[in-house]
């Protein structure tokens, strides 16, 4: 129960500040531009598909949304001292970590859900631009969810080892940039040597393309879940380490 109360409080606090609204609006705007205009956008593809959405969404999520949403999670509580108030309530450290994680993930998922407006508006109502294959759409959203779970866990981990939100933001940004963008490049370059496959596997994008194509690969699911669990465990340890410092 404690976990849920903390998650609830966390999620609510996003909406009492302008943060949630700014992030949601900005992302929608950016996604709209990318989806419809960049490189001819959706029209250029000339098929009833959301490929473009699933191609660009990971960038928006990992390079903007997740760093912004997770930067404050624990860093802010540390610097303002509210962490002491929270932890000296009868809660376990893991409940604090998990609660905060779920609160942040909740916001990210809400944001992802708001993009469902694309397939609905374009293929169901009010416009009907063709018959869409819902399979890849569902698996694509599952992929985005899993990827966000992993990314948010990484952000939480980084927020738990610093007191500064700015540092938390940039380190999370850099880490996710590495996972989303750099591994893509590196994978392409190193492809011949075989190393490319490994590097590709480490990055997010190779897994996301599968999901967008309608392929739910167990390896990808396990991959994202392992990152999530691993990061949460380290975040828990980092929080606990205050006792011994």
């Amino acid at each position: 129960m404690h976990t849920l109360y903390i998650a609830q409080r966390e999620l609510k606090s996003y909406f009492t500040s302008p943060l949630a609204y700014v992030v949601i609006c900005l992302t929608q705007l950016l996604l709209g531009v990318l989806f419809f205009m960049y490189r001819g956008g959706f029209w250029q593809v000339d098929r009833a598909t959301l490929d473009r959405l699933f191609e660009y969404a990971p960038y928006g999520l990992c390079l903007l949304v997740i760093p912004v949403v997770t930067m404050r999670l624990i860093a802010e509580e540390k610097s303002t001292g509210t962490l002491e108030m929270l932890i000296t309530l009868p809660v376990n450290d893991w409940e604090v970590v998990l609660g905060k994680y779920l609160g942040a993930l909740g916001l990210v998922l809400i944001l992802i859900l708001t993009t469902v407006i694309y397939p609905i508006a374009m293929f169901v109502w009010p416009w009907n631009l063709g018959t869409i294959d819902w399979g890849p759409v569902k698996s694509g959203y599952l992929g985005l969810g899993l990827m966000s779970a992993a990314g948010t866990a990484i952000g939480l981990l980084i927020s738990s080892v610093t007191r500064s939100q700015v540092i938390a933001f940039f380190v999370t940004f850099a880490t996710l940039f590495g996972l989303v963008v750099l591994t893509g490049f590196a994978g392409d370059f190193a492809n011949r040597a075989g190393v490319g496959t490994v590097v590709n596997f480490i990055g997010f994008q190779s897994h996301m393309t599968n999901f967008a194509r309608g392929l739910i690969d167990t390896r990808s699911v396990v991959y994202f879940l392992s990152i999530t669990i691993f990061s949460l465990m380290i975040a828990f340890r980092a929080l606990e380490s205050r006792k011994w410092k």
């Binding site: 129960m1 404690h2 109360y5 009492t16 303002t80 108030m85």
Partner: peptide
């Protein structure tokens, strides 16, 4: 019951919300 130095409390909550949160956490 513990009151830490300087009473660090979430600034984005109202007094009632905060006390309710603490009460819930305390069961």
């Amino acid at each position: 019951g513990y009151l830490p130095q300087r009473a660090p409390i979430y600034p984005d909550m109202t007094v009632w919300e905060y006390l309710e949160f603490v009460a819930k956490m305390r069961g």
